[in-house]
Every structure is written in structure tokens, then in C-alpha cells.
């Protein structure tokens, strides 16, 4: 009889395009109630977050300067990679307690969502840019530019679809993100980093942490080099803390807690625009 021992995988953080252990040496044990299977995740610390922000900041200038076309290509590549690993994600969702039917549906929707936003990469600017008809002899136009580094607290209860739905609008717009995976079920998000890793996403554009919201929300919102926070935590204390801390450097705060990500109307370019700044440029018309 051929027996071989299961390989117990260690799930790491994804920071600056590298799979790294938490500097804190802590871990979170995740137990599958049905099979009594356990998985260990890194228990990210504020220093891991700090490193991730630094990576995001370094990546921002580069990513921001990618053409929309190029960003779209990369997002579509992520969709392709997710599609080629869909069995893995379906089984992970099942493992985390979803029905098979719902799991298949969620992976399909996740791929669709990536494709949806990939398609916006070189179009939302056209929808939200304008030439403003000023009454003086000036050419005046406004167009969106990414806000910068965005910290994201991903939905607790939509491990894959919700996770993708909240980070991708920011990323397609040229922002870089540090995202905290669902603290109850981080598996899909952490596996997703492997998809990213094989998808030509430049290092540092998407950084994924596993850990606890109540430990990290304060840091996610107080870091002075973070420009915006997307908050999906339903805990009012977290929300209040985030809003309070955002005053430190006038962070933009977006609360997506109530959005149902399975609904097709939960995707729109206005979510991309949340993490955009409109820049208006004036120039005289003459000779």
C-alpha cells in the first residue's frame, strides 16, 4: 500500500511580492469544524502592516504610471489565473463552510468581477474626465488620479468575492493596497496571493495580511502614509476608531460594510472613483 503523508501547508503573508512570515512569530490556528482539520495562518502585527505600507508606497509611483491598458491586461491575467485554479478555490470555500453550489457560483462571480474591472481600466477615466467650459481663454480639464496607498479591511463574510470586490476597484484605478483578509476565514484571500504572484502584478501593489481587525484597524487608519481606508468591518467600534484616526492626515474613509457583493449592482465605476482624486489643469489658449 502506498501511503504518503499530507503536506501541511503554511500560509504566509504576502508583502512586496514575497511570501513572508510575520515578523512577530505569532500564528492563528484555523479549525475546520467538520473535518477537524487545522490550518495555521500568520498573525500579522503592526510591523508587518508597516512593512506592507512601505512596499505599497514604493510600488505606487510605478503602478500609477502603468497605462490603463496595461493595468487591464494584468487584471485580466489575474482572472485567467483564478480561472485555472478554480477547483482549488471551490474546495477552499467548501472547506470554509459553503455549499458546493454556492462555492462554484462565488468563484465564477469572482472571475467575472475581475474581468469586469479589468475592462474599466482604460475607460473610467473617460467617463469621469471632462473638459470644463470656463469663461476665460483657458483650456481646462479634469481627470481622475489614484489617491495613493489604500488600506482595506476586507469583508468578514465574503471571503473571496467580497475580498476581490473591495480591492480591485482601488487597484484598477492605480492605487496600491494593503488588505486584511477576513479574520474568520482568511484561506481564500491568502491563497489568492498565489494567483497574484503568477499574474504579473508588480511587487507591492497588493499586499495581503491575515490577522485580527481589532488589533490592526487602529494602525490601518493611523498610518500617516496611508491615503484612504476601505472599511468592511461591521463592528461599530472599529468604524468609529477608523473615522477618528482618519483625521490625523485627512484620510478618505469608505464604509462598504452594507454592500451585498453577490449582487451584480455591487460593481460599478463609482467604487473605482472612491479612491480617485480629481485633478483639474488650466492652461491659457493663445499664441
Amino acid at each position: 500500500m502506498n501511503t504518503s503523508l499530507d503536506i501541511k501547508k503554511t500560509y504566509k503573508l504576502y508583502i512586496d511580492g514575497k511570501f513572508s512570515r510575520t515578523e512577530s512569530g505569532r500564528y492563528i490556528q484555523w479549525v475546520d469544524s467538520k473535518n477537524n482539520q487545522t490550518i495555521n495562518f500568520c498573525h500579522a502585527s503592526r510591523k508587518d502592516f508597516r512593512n506592507a505600507v512601505q512596499a505599497s508606497r514604493n510600488a505606487f509611483n510605478n503602478w500609477n504610471n502603468f497605462s490603463g491598458y496595461n493595468r487591464g491586461q494584468i487584471l485580466y491575467r489575474i482572472a485567467e489565473m483564478l480561472d485555472s485554479r478554480k477547483e482549488q478555490f471551490i474546495s477552499e470555500l467548501i472547506l470554509q463552510g459553503k455549499s458546493k453550489k454556492k462555492s462554484i457560483q462565488e468563484v465564477k462571480q469572482s472571475i467575472d468581477r475581475l474581468v469586469y474591472y479589468a475592462g474599466w481600466s482604460d475607460k473610467f477615466q473617460q467617463i469621469f474626465s471632462r473638459v470644463n467650459p470656463v469663461s476665460t481663454p483657458y483650456y481646462n480639464f479634469s481627470s481622475p488620479e489614484p489617491t495613493g496607498v489604500v488600506s482595506v479591511i476586507a469583508p468578514k463574510n465574503s471571503y473571496l468575492l467580497g475580498f476581490i470586490s473591495v480591492i480591485v476597484p482601488a487597484v484598477v484605478g492605480g492605487n496600491t493596497v494593503v488588505v486584511l483578509a477576513s479574520e474568520d476565514n482568511p484561506l481564500c484571500a491568502i491563497s489568492f496571493s498565489e494567483v497574484l504572484h503568477s499574474s504579473d502584478v508588480p511587487n507591492g501593489v497588493i499586499n495581503i495580511l491575515s490577522g485580527y481587525c481589532n488589533e490592526l484597524a487602529g494602525h490601518f487608519s493611523s498610518h500617516m502614509d496611508v491615503n484612504a481606508v476601505i472599511n468592511c468591518s461591521s463592528d461599530l467600534k472599529d468604524s468609529e476608531l477608523i473615522r477618528k484616526n482618519s483625521s490625523l492626515n485627512v484620510k478618505r474613509v469608505f464604509d462598504y460594510e452594507s454592500i451585498d457583493w453577490t449582487h451584480v449592482d455591487s460593481q460599478d465605476p463609482y467604487l473605482i472613483m472612491d479612491c480617485q482624486e480629481v485633478k483639474t489643469t488650466w492652461h491659457p489658449i493663445g499664441y
Binding site: P137, Y138, P284, I285, G286, Y287
Partner: peptide, 8 residues
């Protein structure tokens, strides 16, 4: 160089 708009 002279910028016409600024000049006017």
C-alpha cells in the same frame, strides 16, 4: 517668450 493670454 511672451504668453499672449498672460500679457493681455
Amino acid at each position: 517668450r511672451i504668453d499672449q493670454v498672460g500679457c493681455s
